[in-house]
Design a protein around this nucleic acid. Structure first.
Lengths: 199, 199
DNA sequence: GCAGTATTCGACCGATCGGTCGGTCGGTAT
DNA sequence: ATACCGACCGACCGATCGGTCGAATACTGC
């Protein structure tokens, strides 16, 4: 299944054939169809696994308590660590976020994945809401903040060769991952533009 | 070609067949191959057209002068307007950014697209650099700032149904587009977290 | 030992894929 | 009138697609 994830990450749902996945994992195509009824099933399982892992890890981290701003920082750290753990994660996740037309099916796997995604988003949503209520977070549109956070984190680790070209070296190097955490959190804390009228 | 863009945007390079594109434009598949030698050619042309338009529009806007912070704001405005003009733009652009494995070819169209992308990135890069030199922009890693900007803008307008679900209505509505501009620029100017020690 | 279940496989299916080929048709310059 | 050309098309190609089927093989509890 990890093999399938890697292939789907690189070329998308339509871009890889079942025979290719079978070959990558050392089985025959028929055997693959024995374990997953259809190709869409396999894809949904791959996506679901990633979302479930993120949901689990994020829930665990946020449960450790702390102020809203502090938890938000940890939210970023954990998500980045997870997406950096393998290049396939962010790509598959990004695909599942913007290739929505696709598999509308009511497969149980698909529904479970949707549930996990909903939980992840709802968690971040309430975190931001709480931060605004306590005055730790600037008042702003929560949905747009959410979209910005997703874009900053998920896109970065999905950006592959283009990303490598922009930063000048592998975005998955350990030090470069740490740097991404610092930069994103600094962005959250200060923005990037210094307003001369502020002081 | 607009029809091809829309299809590629929704299902990606491998997800649409030439016959489907041909049918969408009301031509036969053979005719399509008369205008574009291969499928990769067509795809590269579609991507190139978008990048060229962005490059042109961005260059024109930045040439109008102003401080670095002011031009950065305009950079965001123009890019958002462009990506919001049709839902296909952002999706194809995002695909071209993170599906890098694909068509390694040295097709002229592909090279031209790479050039346009390079110019776009380089422009933003020097804009940030100038801002830092003049003290208008906080000192930070320019590549990471770049990645964050791309993520915030491009992902948002590529996010389709998921994005609609998050913001609660169509992300391509005129007022919602204006809101995105405001929210992104506010993010750039203030961050989202209020630091109590700052004042 | 044996029954039963799970795993694996090769062979095969119709459909579709990207791409080619030979040829028709309407304009246009001479 | 003729010669040329670009746009267009239907028919066809081998390859691959997702998926099925029946038969082997391996692993289990008894």
């Amino acid at each position: 299944m990890e093999a399938a994830e890697e292939l789907f990450a690189r070329r998308g749902f339509a871009g890889v054939g079942m025979s290719e996945i079978a070959e990558a994992v050392g089985l025959s195509k028929s055997t693959l169809f024995h374990h997953f009824r259809t190709k869409a099933d396999l894809y949904a399982a791959v996506v679901g696994r990633i979302l479930a892992e993120i949901d689990l890890e994020l829930t665990r981290t946020l449960a450790r308590g702390g102020g809203a701003a502090e938890r938000l920082d940890r939210w970023v750290d954990v998500l980045i660590d997870l997406l950096a753990s393998t290049p396939a994660h962010a790509r598959v996740l990004l695909r599942s976020l913007f290739e929505d037309d696709e598999l509308s099916g009511e497969l149980p796997e698909q529904q479970e994945a949707d549930k996990a995604l909903y939980r992840i988003l709802d968690q971040a949503r309430s975190l931001l809401k709480e931060g605004m209520a306590s005055g730790e977070v600037r008042a702003a549109s929560i949905p747009h903040l959410l979209q910005s956070l997703i874009g900053m984190v998920v896109y970065h680790f999905a950006s592959g060769e283009v990303g490598d070209g922009i930063v000048g070296r592998s975005i998955f190097g350990a030090d470069e991952v740490e740097r991404r955490k610092r930069e994103v959190k600094a962005f959250l804390h200060h923005g990037i533009i210094i307003d001369p009228e502020k002081n």
